[in-house]
């Protein structure tokens, strides 16, 4: 299990993640307060007295410094304030629910990315220069040269439009879903669109790393012991080949988090990404700050998780 030193390291990293989240939200806080106008200006019928009351309710009549103090003390308690548009709705529970939705799709995309990427990569490496290798390589090239919003749009066209027409409306992908938990069908197609470009990268990397590992002396040692090819590949090669793959897991997770903004909007998924765009458009700045804070936390924790994954896979790395 985790040693004392590793626990101390974990603690330090968690403090760092929290600090980063506060820093990111502070920058966004200061940024949005520099923008002209506010969420209430579109309410044409609002009278000056009512506006004054609203401004007071949201502490917008205070000085920037006082507002910031209130904001930081709130964020340290986990309170991100109230929505400016849907008055009286607290932001933290709302975003937590939406984060759950995003997590479903994101986790599915990540599993799909790693699973498909690794399987394709390993097969391509073992069958190097065979038609399987060429097919996997060609698929990968297509995968990572196509941005995920293109893939998403094509998938919507196929599953929501063509499939609907072809089956006479019996089976099709319904754009937009309500509630927190999506069905397997609702999750899998966006997850595919989100993960496919990254799966291609993982496949390329796994292939290259696997080919490199298969040339190593210890693979020859394993064969000289009389182990079967299957055991040599799974036990001796794959684990070593995964080390560079774990390295890109950090940037990859970030890519999936940021990619979800586009994908959720294309598929109408009620997650953080959709909220992000909507809140900017409606100038709901409190929510904008909240979404940024969530993203900062998610990216920080994902990187932390990747760093600890290293120690699980490579005994030479210890914290």
């Amino acid at each position: 299990m985790l040693s004392r030193r590793a626990l101390i390291y974990l603690g330090e990293r968690l403090v760092l993640v929290a600090f980063t989240a506060v820093a990111v939200s502070s920058i966004v806080f200061l940024g949005v307060h520099q923008l002209p106008g506010n969420a209430f200006l579109s309410d044409r019928r609002i009278d000056p007295v009512a506006l004054q009351a609203i401004m007071h309710h949201y502490h917008l009549d205070l000085s920037l410094f006082d507002q910031y103090k209130l904001f930081v003390s709130g964020i340290l308690r986990g309170d991100l304030g109230e929505s400016l548009v849907n008055r009286g709705i607290p932001i933290t529970p709302l975003l937590l629910r939406e984060a759950t939705v995003s997590l479903e799709v994101g986790a599915a995309a990540l599993i799909f990315t790693i699973g498909l990427g690794m399987v394709l990569g390993v097969i391509a490496a073992i069958k190097q220069n065979s038609w399987i290798d060429y097919l996997a390589t060609a698929t990968s090239v297509v995968g990572y040269s196509m941005p995920n919003f293109v893939i998403a749009t094509v998938l919507v066209l196929i599953f929501a439009v063509y499939l609907y027409n072809w089956s006479g409306g019996a089976i099709y992908y319904e754009i937009g879903w309500n509630g927190t938990y999506g069905t397997l069908g609702q999750i899998s197609i966006p997850a595919f669109a989100l993960g496919f470009p990254y799966a291609s990268i993982v496949a390329r990397l796994t292939r290259a790393s696997m080919l490199e590992v298969l040339r190593q002396d210890y693979i020859r040692t394993a064969k000289a012991k009389g182990l079967s090819d299957r055991i040599v590949i799974i036990r001796h090669a794959l684990r070593n080949a995964l080390i560079p793959v774990v390295t890109i897991l950090g940037p990859l997770t970030i890519g999936i988090i940021t990619g979800s903004v586009v994908i959720e909007n294309v598929f109408g998924i009620p997650g953080l990404g959709k909220e992000f765009v909507q809140s900017i458009l409606s100038r709901d700045y409190n929510i904008v700050i909240g979404v940024f804070t969530f993203y900062a936390l998610a990216i920080g924790l994902a990187n932390l998780l990747v760093d600890f994954l290293y120690t699980a896979i490579d005994p030479r790395i210890r914290y």
């Binding site: 002396d217 210890y218 000289a224 070593n240 005994p315 030479r316």
Partner: peptide, 17 residues
């Protein structure tokens, strides 16, 4: 027939005990 190799560092798998 067993065989042992030249460089014992690269000939042992680094991630296995």
């Amino acid at each position: 027939i067993a065989m042992i190799f030249q460089d014992p560092l690269s000939s042992l798998n680094p991630v296995l005990k």
